[in-house]
């Protein structure tokens, strides 16, 4: 996973709520079997409409997305995270995220920051007034900074540690292989196991 410590970049103010993952990347792009190559698919249907903020020339190169409530709800597709990263986003700031999307983002090094509505509103105003103003997301100090605004945020220590060090979650878990094996030894014997469909049933 890509390391995340402190990132500064220009932002895209996306004044929409309930942006589900079907909007972030329409399903027709989810037939791909790769983790990369999804930049053009990001918000594909909205980008085809006139006046979508992502398409404004002054938003080119932006790396922080500022979204309304409930960003990333709906389908569990991790393509949504991959598409945002491929496009160049390193962080998303919103008042609330879909749970699965949030988990996916933190597993991939896309930092999702929860900020109060009023703060997102202020960030929208600042970045609409001046598209060149950088937004800084600081995971070391757990702060978002923009112009004069300084806003703290929280993140679980486990997720923060993995992001700061760019740690692979699986390697992290495999340190506890002995605990996993010990747990396995205590599982109820009647729990189901999966079987290959028999030739007769086929």
């Amino acid at each position: 996973m890509e390391k995340f410590t402190v990132h500064s970049g220009t932002a895209v103010p996306l004044r929409r709520t309930d942006v589900d993952t079907d909007q972030i990347i329409p399903v027709r792009f989810c037939a791909s079997t790769s983790r990369t190559g999804h930049a053009d698919a990001l918000f594909a249907d909205w980008r085809a409409e006139d006046g979508f903020v992502l398409e404004e020339p002054e938003r080119r190169g932006a790396s922080v997305l500022l979204a309304g409530q409930d960003f990333g709800t709906g389908s569990s597709r991790e393509y949504a995270v991959w598409a945002l990263q491929d496009y160049g986003f390193r962080a998303v700031i919103a008042p609330r995220f879909g749970d699965i999307f949030r988990g996916n983002s933190l597993m991939n090094g896309l930092l999702t920051v929860v900020a109060p509505d009023a703060v997102v509103e202020r960030l929208w105003e600042l970045t609409e007034a001046d598209p060149a103003v950088p937004v800084t997301v600081d995971l070391e100090r757990l702060q978002v900074r923009c112009a004069g605004l300084v806003q703290g945020f929280t993140l679980d220590e486990d997720a923060r540690r993995r992001l700061l060090c760019g740690l692979d979650a699986i390697a992290d878990t495999l340190r506890f292989e002995a605990d996993i094996a010990a747990y396995e030894a205590t599982r109820r014997p009647a729990l189901p196991v999966t079987r290959r469909p028999s030739a007769a049933a086929r």
């Binding site: 569990s76 996916n104 597993m107 495999l174 996993i180």
Partner: peptide, 13 residues
């Protein structure tokens, strides 16, 4: 429901 990275995590561990 989980994402692809978590799928990988469960497969491995």
């Amino acid at each position: 429901g989980i994402g692809a990275s978590q799928v990988e995590h469960v497969l491995a561990t």
